[in-house]
Design a protein around this nucleic acid. Structure first.
Lengths: 144, 144
DNA sequence: GTGTGTGCAAACATTTTGCATAGGC
DNA sequence: GCCTATGCAAAATGTTTGCACACAC
């Protein structure tokens, strides 16, 4: 799993280099945090973890780095109901999200049938889908 | 169409009265705006229209009224990609949204098949859906 | 050395809130 | 007349930006 993370870190770094961007200390730290995190952290969470590594990293830099990484296609930004933007590595495979409303945990899923139905609906309405967002806010069965 | 609006205005007013809330001048104005608007206005837009009617209506009151109406189930609040919250009358029939990314126009649609698939997916993941959100960001075919 | 990236503080956009007063019932 | 609802200004929240300096290349 260390190897897994290393691989992802290298991916992020390759993307930055390829775009002619500098591999600065704050960016390295932020990238490492993204590579390690299994969940979908928000900017503040990333900032906190980065601060633990190097107190001088600023929240602005976290936001700026997120923007750059998003523009380069390295990460995706999601804004779930009510909350701040949360980030996840963009591994190219599209998926939707189920959000556990009790814990905030995010479960990824994918349904080709739903995707196809969406296309169909848009077409019938005279539109062409550019992007879409499907979020299920749910709670574990058996609880409560 | 005037009659249509009258009917909806009466509905809103009934909801407020039933909940023991006062039918104030700002609330009447805001309700009339909601009843007339075919699209999904945001707080500022409602505020602007209300101001035209009575300059003394404040933005706080717009927000407070939206909150009350939402709590009583009279309207729904949606936050589309990037933008501020937008509001629409809650007519009880659930639907999803297609947003024209060029104009911001909102088209409502509904697919029982997608609804069922969502339920199915949640169940398989061990969850029970509390609410969900499906938004298609699209552009008209033939354009561009 | 040059220019991009950074930290800091201030600005921004949206929404909420405390408080004294106005106005529905 | 009582108590809810309002206007105003201030705060809160999340995010962006201007500026002078720092540091990756």
């Amino acid at each position: 799993m260390g190897g897994e993370n290393q691989a992802r870190i290298a991916d992020y770094e390759a993307i930055l280099r390829r775009s002619g961007m500098r591999l600065t200390r704050p960016r390295k730290i932020i990238i490492a945090i993204l590579a390690e995190s299994a969940d979908h952290p928000d900017a503040l969470e990333i900032f906190r973890q980065a601060s633990a590594e190097d107190t001088s990293v600023s929240l602005s830099t976290v936001y700026r780095t997120m923007k750059v990484l998003e523009e380069k296609g390295a990460i995706q930004r999601h804004v779930f109901e009510g909350g701040p933007a949360r980030f996840e590595p963009d591994r190219g495979e599209h998926h939707d999200h189920l959000i556990d409303i009790e814990t905030g945990q995010v479960v990824e899923f994918r349904s080709d049938r739903i995707e196809r139905l969406q296309e169909e609906i848009a077409r019938e309405l005279g539109y062409e889908i550019v992007s879409h967002r499907l979020e299920l806010y749910a709670k574990r069965v058996g609880k409560n």
